[in-house]
């Protein structure tokens, strides 16, 4: 008798069958899911170059729909509104997030963990309820809806992301660098601007880009907090979609996909390079 016969032949067969079933199931589902996620986006981009108005029949290559997008004054205006709001709210949100992250990582104060959890609330609460609450708040205080209300709403939902990113980086920062600066006679202010801030700059830039993207794409908050004349791009797209699909929307979608992918590459470029080098 060999020593491997702890398992009977029947058990071995069962294990072989099970291994094959489980082993095939996971990759098959993964493949189908990635197709499910990406085929629609690829189709969208491909048909933005279609010469006819049809979204099915291919009738030649054209850039005309992109021209239509750039000619649309309403879209240009919406793009401007979205860009201003994304920039300002990302700036405010990153500043608040960085300050909070540093306080949580570096400072000792009572109720620190509770506060850190409370600050994440906007990530788990239903966005529509926060949006409605802000609308009611602005109306109650007689504040006209517009840039201010929209920026506040976007800052509220992007701050937790900015805080988390900077917090993770600050927690892994080598404190000896700051101690060395202190030993060399630098005061707190100098230590922050000459040592801590430069070291935290890459994650702060990442937080800024993430916050700007989230704000640029935000739809739920803006539905309730945008005012007359300050329609951001997603709201504009929504009303266009309600009227029906045209290749112009495909072209606009393709442009936004391109913009979003560029941001991803900018943020993850370093990580990607590391992976490819392996």
């Amino acid at each position: 008798m060999s020593e491997t016969s702890v398992l009977t032949q029947g058990q071995k067969t069962r294990i072989w069958i099970e291994a094959n079933l489980l082993g095939r199931l996971a990759p098959a589902v993964t493949l189908l899911a990635y197709l499910f996620l990406f085929v629609p986006i690829v189709v969208l981009v491909a048909y933005s170059f279609n010469a006819s108005r049809s979204t099915v029949v291919w009738s030649g290559f054209t850039f005309d729909w992109y021209g239509e997008v750039f000619k649309d004054r309403g879209l240009r205006q919406a793009l401007q509104v979205s860009a201003i709001i994304a920039f300002v709210s990302a700036l405010v949100s990153t500043a608040i997030g960085a300050l909070t992250a540093l306080a949580i990582v570096r400072r000792r104060f009572p109720g620190r963990d509770a506060l850190a959890t409370l600050l994440l609330a906007p990530m788990v609460l239903p966005e529509i309820v926060m949006a409605v609450a802000l609308l009611v708040f602005m109306v109650a205080l007689n504040i006209t809806l517009g840039y201010f209300s929209m920026i506040v709403s976007h800052v509220l939902i992007t701050v937790p992301f900015a805080t988390l990113i900077v917090r993770a980086a600050a927690a892994s920062l080598d404190r000896r660098l700051e101690e060395a600066a202190a030993d060399l006679g630098a005061n707190e202010w100098q230590i922050f601007w000459r040592v801590t801030f430069p070291l935290l700059l890459p994650p702060i830039v990442t937080a800024f880009l993430l916050a700007a993207t989230l704000s640029f794409d935000n739809f739920v908050m803006s539905t309730f907090t945008s005012g007359v004349g300050t329609t951001p791009l997603p709201l504009r797209i929504y009303s266009m979609l309600k009227l029906g699909i045209t290749p112009k929307i495909n072209a606009l979608g393709a442009l936004m996909v391109l913009l979003n992918v560029l941001v991803v590459v900018a943020v993850m470029g370093r990580h990607l390079k590391l992976i490819l080098k392996k």
Binding site: Y34, F38, D217, F219, G253, M256, V261
Partner: peptide, 28 residues
């Protein structure tokens, strides 16, 4: 993992509009 992140970054409405195109009466 990064591929799974990309849909997060692409505008939600644009992704849904792709399905409006695909599922239309004369859609793909």
């Amino acid at each position: 993992l990064i591929l799974m992140l990309i849909p997060f970054w692409i505008d939600f409405l644009i992704r849904i509009s792709a399905w409006v195109v695909l599922m239309g009466r004369n859609g793909m």
